[in-house]
Amino acid sequence: MRVEIWSDIACPWCYIGKARFEEGLAAFAHGEQVEVVHRSFELDPNRAKGDTAPVIEMLAKKYGRTVEEATAMEEHVASNARAEGLGYRTEGRDHGNTFDIHRLLHLAKARGRQDELLSLAYRANFAEERSVFDPEVLVTLAVEAGLDEAEARAVLADESAYADDVRADEREAAELGATGVPFFVLDRKYGVSGGQPAEVFTQALQQAWGDRAPLQTLGDGETCGPDGCEVPQVKGDV
């Protein structure tokens, strides 16, 4: 069975959803026979390369909230991440264009190190004091994931490298009806939208394992889309 996961490194629900999916996969009896492929989806594709902004500032502007309200929104997501044992900084993080990260992830896929690089990039972006929008940080992460430093630098220097692969993933997501991420497609039979609880992923894997039905959406959880991440209505006194 193949599971394809459309995600963006800037998406907190993708970070959380990856952990929950892996927990659900671990509880699936045939987990060792599941191939996981990560695919590209940009939340902010029109943002210029190098144009970064603090996450809190970006959230306040996007949702028309105060800085205090935007901080509370981040705390809501952080509480979900921490419940999964994930580190999450609510301050000091940047938001920017993720196209180069996706291109590097396709290099990692070609070298059999995609999941390793994605995990490191998520941790750097959400839990550590490292900006994934800094090319030198990306090179460091690539090396930590087991990639060749010179090859990683060459990909980042050549804006056409793996660009078509990123765009192909994004077109395919649109064809499948994905408007937000994370979006999980199980053996091209079922879709699971959002960072669902682990047991939902286990159930979906079990159902897809023995069923040949057309693609159906089994869950509709919290996602991030081009207009932002789904968040609760936050009162000013939170």
Rank of each mutant, 00 (worst) to 15 (best):
L118A: 13
L86W: 10
Q206P: 00
A173M: 05
E144K: 12
H106W: 13
A70D: 01
L156R: 10
G221H: 10
A168Y: 07
L120V: 09
F201P: 02
E75P: 00
E151C: 03
P54N: 08
R93Y: 01
Q206H: 02
P54V: 01
N97Y: 11
H95M: 13
C224W: 03
D8L: 09
D158A: 12
D187P: 00
I16C: 11
V234Q: 06
E68K: 10
P182K: 09
A121R: 01
A72C: 14
I101Y: 02
A208M: 04
N125R: 14
D220N: 07
R103F: 10
K235C: 00
Q114L: 07
A26E: 15
G225Y: 03
Y162L: 05
A53E: 15
W13A: 04
C11A: 14
V155S: 06
A178T: 01
H106T: 06
V137Y: 06
H76N: 08
F28H: 07
F99D: 03
G194E: 10
G96C: 12
E149P: 05
A127L: 06
G191D: 04
A72I: 04
L117M: 09
E116N: 10
A70P: 02
A168D: 12
D115P: 01
A154D: 14
D220Y: 12
E199S: 15
M1A: 12
V37M: 06
F184H: 13
A19E: 14
Q207R: 15
A60Y: 02
Q216A: 11
L218I: 02
K61A: 15
T179I: 08
L141P: 05
I56K: 13
D227G: 15
E128A: 14
G87K: 10
Q233K: 12
E69K: 03
D165I: 00
E230S: 12
L104Y: 05
A163V: 10
R123W: 09
Q114Y: 06
R212Q: 14
G50N: 12
V155R: 06
R130S: 11
E230Q: 14
T202M: 03
E172W: 10
Y122E: 02
F201R: 05
E222P: 00
V77L: 09
A157W: 09
E35I: 02
V155Q: 09
V166G: 08
D164V: 12
S7M: 13
L107Q: 11
V234R: 04
D115T: 13
P54R: 10
R212V: 08
L104D: 07
Y88E: 03
